[in-house]
Amino acid sequence: MSESEAEIGSVEELLESTRIIDVLFMELNASRIESSHEESAEAERDLDLATMLRHEGNELDVRFLLEFKDNAASYRVDVVARYCVEDDRSIPPRVSSEFIERVAAFAAFPFLREALATSAARLRVDPPILGILRQGDIKVSEWPSEDAPATS
């Protein structure tokens, strides 16, 4: 088998042999920010999204770590979309990146948005609104080996 035959060639090929098996929270944290002054008309907002990928055996995990802070609260939400890949071929980086942008992000983002909205409601602050996620916005980094989610 040649090297190109040993790889999944497209995200469509990957989708044919992949199914989602779980979406789990690794961390959910929200803190109200107490301030002595009223919120300024221009609210300060800071958003950071880290995306990590881990592929071991037939499991493909895509992790989204969202950190958001505004004048009212700070949030940290860590969600993993877990997939089972029933194909022994390797997944090249261009295919996994496209899979993350076109599939995994759409599986995980409702969980991220819901966690932010629910946490804000519990803190009794206005819920943060996440902007539109555009193609090319997601940058994938290495998954820290000590942070692997437990298998069920």
Rank of each mutant, 00 (worst) to 15 (best):
M1Y: 01
M1D: 13
M1N: 12
S2D: 14
E3K: 12
E3A: 13
S4K: 11
E5F: 09
E7N: 11
E7D: 12
I8Y: 07
I8S: 05
I8F: 00
G9W: 05
G9I: 11
V11R: 04
E12W: 09
L15H: 00
L15K: 10
E16N: 11
T18N: 08
I20M: 15
I20Y: 04
I21E: 15
I21Y: 04
V23R: 09
V23E: 08
L24V: 08
L24F: 10
L24P: 10
F25I: 01
F25K: 12
M26I: 10
E27T: 15
E27L: 08
I33N: 08
S35P: 03
S35R: 14
S36N: 12
E38K: 15
E38A: 13
E42L: 10
E42Y: 14
A43L: 10
R45S: 08
A50Q: 13
T51E: 03
M52S: 09
R54Y: 00
H55G: 09
H55T: 06
G57S: 11
N58F: 08
N58L: 07
L60Q: 01
V62F: 07
V62G: 02
R63P: 02
L65Q: 11
L66G: 00
K69R: 15
D70H: 03
A72F: 13
S74R: 14
Y75W: 03
Y75V: 01
V77M: 04
V77E: 00
V77L: 05
V79T: 01
V80C: 05
V80Q: 01
V80T: 10
A81G: 07
A81S: 15
A81D: 01
R82T: 07
D87N: 12
D87V: 07
D87Y: 12
D88Y: 08
D88E: 14
R89G: 02
I91W: 04
P92E: 06
P93H: 10
R94P: 02
S96W: 01
F99H: 09
E101L: 02
R102A: 13
A105M: 13
F106L: 13
F109I: 05
P110C: 03
P110W: 13
F111M: 08
L112S: 01
L112M: 07
E114T: 10
E114H: 05
L116D: 00
L116N: 02
T118P: 00
T118S: 13
T118I: 14
A121Q: 13
R124F: 05
V125I: 11
V125H: 03
L130W: 03
G131A: 05
G131H: 03
R134N: 14
R134M: 15
Q135V: 04
G136M: 04
I138R: 06
I138W: 06
I138A: 05
K139T: 05
K139Y: 12
S141F: 15
S141P: 08
S145C: 09
E146G: 04
D147A: 11
P149V: 01
A150V: 07
T151R: 13
T151Q: 11
S152D: 12
